[in-house]
Amino acid sequence: MNIFRLTGDLSHLAAIIILLLKIWKTRSCAGISGKSQILFALVFTTRYLDLLTSFISLYNTTMKVIYIGCAYATVYLIYMKFKATYDGNHDSFRMEFLVVPVGGLACLVNHDFSFLEILWTFSIYLESVAILPQLFMISKTGEAETITTHYLFFLGLYRALYLFNWIWRFYFEGFFDMIAIVAGMVQTILYCDFFYLYVTKGQGISL
C-alpha cells in the first residue's frame, strides 16, 4: 500500500458514494447512464470473484464488498426505485459493442487461460471503457449537472492515481502488470477531455 493507491481507492469510493447520494437525495437519476452503471456492476462482479477463493486483507475484502454493494444499489435505484426519472432515450449506447469485443480480447490477451483469470482480465478491459455510455449521454444531451461532473472527476482521478501507484510499485516492489497498466492508461486517457472541461468550466458542463 502506498499513498497513490490509498488516495486512488478513496477517490474511487468518493465517486461511488457521490453518485449514490446524488440519486438518493434528489430522488432522481436524470443525466445518469444506467448502462455505465450496469457495466460497472459487471466489472466488480467479475473482478471480485476472488473474494470466494482467497483472502488478502481486511481492507481489501471490505472495499470489495462495499464497491460491489454500492454498484448494485446504484443499478437498483436507476432501474427500479427511481425508474420514472431514468432518461433511457438519451442512454442509447449499445452495451454489446463494449462487452463483446472486450470479452474476445480477454480470451486472447491474458496472463493465464483460466476461468477466474479471464474474468479478471475481462473486468480490467471492461472498466477502461465502461464510462463511455455516460460520456456518450453527456455529449448527446450537451450538459451535465455539477454533481455528475464531480462524480466523473473522482472516477477519472482514481485510475490516474493508480498509474502513479504502478510506477511506485515498479520501482519499489518490482511489481509489473502490463494488462492493468495499458488498460489503466486507456481508461485515464478517456477522461482527459472531461478533465479539461471540468477544470476550465469548473461546474456544470454544457457543451
Binding site: 493507491r5 481507492d9 486483507s57 472495499m63 496472463h111 479478471w120 518490482g174 509489473f176
Partner: peptide, 10 residues
C-alpha cells in the same frame, strides 16, 4: 525479480 500480476489491488 519481477513480481507479475498479484491480485491485491482493487
Amino acid at each position: 525479480s519481477l513480481n507479475i500480476n498479484p491480485k491485491d489491488e482493487l
